[in-house]
Structures are given as structure tokens and as C-alpha cells.
């Protein structure tokens, strides 16, 4: 097993635990932190495949993922603050308007 494959395994662990955090966490802010975990896992997979292949395209793509992560945090935290101010919601189990 080469070191790149080991790093890809770690990246898959990061992605799946981010998904797990999105499923299980109660607080909306920690839920957003878990999505950041998923994005980090994808970045790590791109960079390690890049080293195995020997190119730089994966790193360029990971850079764009960083830009998307920054904008996602801005919009997501804006949504959370607006939700808290208008409705007083802070937990993911309180948002049930579409279900009812």
C-alpha cells in the first residue's frame, strides 16, 4: 500500500464522519462545521491523487473548493442568524414547517 492510498482512506474517513455529523448533531452551527469536514475530506482526496499522478490540476480544483467553502459559510451562517432572529430557532429539530 502506497502512502497516497493511505491518505485517500483518511479522506474518506473525513468525508463520512462529516456526513455522520450532519445526520446526528442537534445544533445548527455544529451541523455547518460538519459540512466543512466533508469539504476538507474532498480536498485531501484531490491532493493525494494529485501526488500519485504527479500533476497539479487537483490542487487547482481544491483551491476552487476553498473559495466555494468560504462563500458557503457566509451564506449558511447568514441563514442561521436570520432563522434565529426571525423564529428563535437554534436546533435542527425545530425546523419542521415543510413537514407539517
Amino acid at each position: 500500500m502506497s502512502i497516497e492510498k493511505a491518505y485517500i482512506l483518511i479522506s474518506i474517513f473525513l468525508f463520512l464522519s462529516g456526513l455522520f455529523g450532519v445526520i446526528i448533531r442537534k445544533n445548527l452551527i455544529t451541523l455547518l462545521i460538519s459540512t466543512e469536514l466533508m469539504l476538507n475530506g474532498v480536498n485531501l482526496a484531490l491532493v493525494s491523487v494529485d501526488r500519485a499522478v504527479g500533476g497539479i490540476e487537483g490542487q487547482v480544483f481544491a483551491l476552487f473548493i476553498l473559495a466555494v467553502a468560504a462563500s458557503e459559510v457566509a451564506v449558511g451562517l447568514g441563514l442561521i442568524v436570520a432563522l434565529f432572529r426571525l423564529k428563535g430557532y437554534e436546533g435542527s429539530s425545530e425546523i419542521t414547517h415543510l413537514r407539517e
Binding site: I24, K26, N27, L77, I80, F84, E90, S93
Partner: peptide, 24 residues
């Protein structure tokens, strides 16, 4: 990003956060 998160956490009252901590 982390500074942004900390800023948002400080705007939310702490006793509301206390009700929703931990995991299902």
C-alpha cells in the same frame, strides 16, 4: 472561516444554545 463562526456564536444567547447541544 473560524473567526466568522466565533462571531456568529457570540451573537446567539447562550441559554438558547444550551437546549440543543450534543447529538441525537
Amino acid at each position: 472561516i473560524v473567526v466568522f463562526y466565533v462571531l456568529v456564536i457570540t451573537t446567539i444567547p447562550w441559554e438558547k444554545v444550551k437546549r440543543f447541544e450534543g447529538f441525537y
